[in-house]
């Protein structure tokens, strides 16, 4: 190969990606991350741990139905936007178990957003952290970065017949996690898990605007010592646990 051919080949290699960009039709609205939210809100959740019922899976069931998540089959691959766990003090192991739900903490400094190479993981102005399934390339860096194991990957296809026709089907090969049911919150409704928990009279989940001093969640936060998980990491989680 002579020098001229070498240079020409190099030039083609250099410019090819640029043409690729031009040909690619934008798959998502650039403003999707900040759209349709009124300013000044900061959504958060309080989990009133003593009110969470042992053996109850109402929040998980409601979440799965609302977000068209597949039925659990394999613990290693299942997607749970919210999951019930039981925990016990390390030194009194087994004596007293506390049930509580774990979900995306909608951090103010979300590591999943920091590491996402294509800004598919984003934080809305109202603080909801979510992943754009149309943009995600499936690199799974967010699963690695999340200290709460709250991100999941679509290893398999979504459910065959969606339970909720208003909510889009799952795409395969992308990352996902709890969105605080942003599609409901934007209509002025509560997340499905919160509604369901209220429905059985447990009221262990309280959702609301942390910036509104009159909201129930703000009043709870002002008078109680509620704590986020692993606040030492600097992620500033916005799901607080009361009575833990």
């Amino acid at each position: 190969m002579d020098r001229r051919k070498f240079l020409r080949a190099g030039g083609i290699a250099l410019t090819a990606p640029a043409f690729g960009c031009a040909l690619q039709v934008p798959s998502t609205d650039e403003s999707a991350g900040s759209g349709h939210t009124s300013s000044g809100q900061r959504w958060g959740m309080v989990v009133d741990v003593p009110k969470c019922r042992e053996g109850c899976t109402t929040c998980m069931d409601a979440c799965r139905a609302e977000n068209n998540l597949p039925e659990p089959e394999d613990r290693r691959l299942d997607v749970h936007y919210i999951r019930k766990v039981r925990i016990t003090r390390k030194h009194t192991a087994g004596e007293l178990e506390t049930p509580l739900p774990l979900l995306c903490n909608h951090c103010d400094n979300p590591p999943c957003v920091q590491v996402c190479p294509v800004k598919a993981s984003f934080k809305r102005e109202d603080g909801i952290v979510m992943c754009d399934a149309h943009r995600c390339i499936g690199c799974r860096y967010c699963l690695i970065a999340c200290p709460y194991n709250a991100r999941f990957f679509s290893y398999t296809e979504g459910v065959e017949s969606p339970q909720n026709p208003d909510f889009p089907q799952r795409a395969h090969g992308v990352s996902q996690g709890c969105t605080f049911c942003s599609h409901l919150v934007d209509q002025g409704k509560l997340p499905a898990c919160v509604t369901a928990c209220e429905g059985i009279g447990a009221r262990a989940l309280i959702f609301g605007d942390l910036n509104d001093s009159d909201s129930e969640i703000s009043r709870i936060m002002a008078t109680n010592r509620a704590q986020g998980l692993r606040e030492d990491l600097g992620t500033e989680p916005k799901v607080y646990y009361l009575g833990l």
Binding site: K119, R135, G173
Partner: peptide, 25 residues
């Protein structure tokens, strides 16, 4: 890295949108 993505068909997405603070960018 690319063949390991869940969506290798989205090869051009990183050229369109990128987060300059991600180590994967």
């Amino acid at each position: 890295i690319i063949l390991d993505w869940g969506r290798p068909d989205r090869i051009f997405v990183p050229f369109q949108y990128f987060n300059p603070f991600s180590m994967f960018t």
